[in-house]
């Protein structure tokens, strides 16, 4: 068995009177691409934020590489939702990526050439090296997402938490990001990705967490991503669409 990268135990988060997620419990082995899937309001973003101590939790324990989050903070990279920052900020794409390195640079010390080179390389890896000096508001949605991803890349973390990196991006960006995720996996990184598009889950992720306020199922995609579990996660309305997907998949595989 692989070592555990992220272990969530008995996690309950509540706002006001309403619990948002409860009794969430799962382990994620190292080196997996993990999709967190669930309907709107199922508490996906809340789960990520609770893992990172950004919101208070009512109960529960989170361990990252066997330690509490704040002790392994440096091994975690977070890709927030795109709307979370001010894109009018006067910085260019390269600056944003370089921010991922600030921790390594340290207090007060200036950015040196090697840092900028590392940032450029990360931009090249996400395929937008030529946009390094573009002001960030002039990037398209997909390019902004790639910039965020490049920033996560230079952090050189071992566990990445990504909040809907594939939401509202063009097809080319989606392909590029997925390609990158696979590369990261090949390098032994673990990525936990909130994902909204059911059709592509089996193609992108080898591990899923089906979440609807509590964990419906978690495990290897081929074991867990079943029609029955999806129905438990999404409810009856999805069945039709789902059966169609299933049929498509089967035909593609030639069964």
């Amino acid at each position: 068995m692989d070592p555990i990268a992220l272990s969530v135990d008995d996690l309950t988060v509540a706002y006001h009177r309403k619990p948002v997620i409860w009794d969430v419990e799962f382990d994620i082995p190292q080196g997996k691409l993990v999709g967190i899937v669930g309907p709107n309001g199922a508490g996906k973003s809340t789960l990520l934020k609770a893992i990172m101590d950004l919101i208070p939790r009512a109960s529960g324990r989170v361990e990252v590489f066997g330690k509490p989050y704040h002790q392994s903070l440096h091994r975690v990279g977070y890709v927030p939702q795109r709307e979370s920052v001010d894109w009018d900020f006067p910085v260019d794409a390269l600056d944003v990526v370089t921010m991922g390195l600030y921790r390594r640079v340290g207090w007060c010390l200036p950015i040196r050439k090697k840092h900028r080179d590392a940032a450029r390389e990360a931009l090249a890896r996400v395929g937008i090296a030529d946009l390094a000096h573009r002001q960030i508001s002039q990037l398209s949605g997909g390019q902004q997402q790639r910039t965020f991803l490049a920033r996560a890349l230079v952090q050189d973390a071992d566990l990445y938490l990504m909040d809907e990196p594939l939401a509202a991006v063009d097809a080319a960006t989606e392909a590029a990001i997925v390609e990158l995720l696979k590369q990261m996996q090949a390098d032994g990184k673990t990525a936990v990705v909130i994902h909204h598009d059911l059709q592509s889950v089996p193609d992108y992720f080898d591990h899923v967490v089906l979440l609807n306020m509590r964990v419906v199922a978690t495990g290897r995609t081929q074991d867990v991503f079943t029609n029955e579990n999806l129905q438990k996660t999404y409810g009856g309305r999805l069945t039709l669409l789902d059966e169609a997907t299933e049929a498509m998949r089967r035909r593609e595989r030639g069964i």
Binding site: L73, V76, Y78, V85, M99, G100, Y102, R103, R151
Partner: peptide, 10 residues
């Protein structure tokens, strides 16, 4: 620019 990242970066 991104207070969460700053805090996470120490």
């Amino acid at each position: 620019f991104d207070a969460a990242l700053a805090t996470a970066s120490g």
